[in-house]
């Protein structure tokens, strides 16, 4: 789906207003707001200009969102130790490692089932954003569908009787 120019403009203003936030938090905030807009438009059931304007109006001005994010204490101190509870800061844990092992080694030893269980672990992890999980799911789904289609075509052509005969 192509991003509406109004939404693009809004996200641009949000990014500009978030200049004092760390790069990863700024990017994540943009993704969160984008997801929120998409969800609100999906709930509204229409994507026209009026619906987009309504959603953006309800969200408030980008500067207000950033002010709420930064809080009354001002921008976060970049020299401060990272918060280990912040999913953007923490490193991979057991769930993420299991997910990656199932997607890679699991796909070799447990074809079809391995990657699918791996995706369950991916979705249960808070390490990746919803969009990133969605992209990983689409990658697996598309390649598995191609495999299944290839197998179906292969077995279909094998089942066909031989019509040409050598003399």
């Amino acid at each position: 789906m192509e991003t509406d120019p109004l939404v693009r403009d809004y996200l641009g203003r949000l990014e500009a207003a978030a200049w004092m936030l760390p790069g990863d938090r700024r990017r994540e905030l943009g993704e969160e707001v984008h997801e929120h807009i998409d969800a609100a438009l999906a709930a509204a059931g229409r994507q026209d200009e009026v619906a987009v304007r309504n959603v953006l109006e309800r969200l408030g001005r980008p500067e207000e969102i950033i002010a709420a994010e930064v809080g009354p204490g001002g921008p976060p101190n970049p020299t401060q130790a990272p918060d280990p509870a912040d999913p953007a800061r923490r490193s991979m844990g057991g769930v993420e490692i299991i997910a990656l092992l199932l997607l890679t080694i699991g796909a070799i030893f447990l074809p079809l089932i391995g990657p699918l269980i791996g995706l369950v672990f991916v979705w249960s992890s808070s390490y990746w954003t919803r969009n990133q999980k969605l992209v990983a799911t689409v990658i697996v789904a598309v390649l598995l569908l191609i495999t299944i289609a290839g197998l179906a075509v292969g077995s279909g052509s094998a089942a066909q009787p031989q019509t040409t005969r050598s003399m």
Binding site: T104, V122, Q132, I139, V142, L143, I146
Partner: peptide, 30 residues
């Protein structure tokens, strides 16, 4: 014994997704 090339897509599907997830994880930590 030969393996149908289409079977290779099964591990490739998981590996491609795993590479993507590791890449976005590393990019975020930078």
């Amino acid at each position: 014994m030969s393996i149908e090339p289409v079977y290779l897509l099964i591990p490739l599907a998981g590996i491609a997704a795993a590479v993507f997830l590791v890449a976005v994880g590393l990019r975020r930590r930078r």
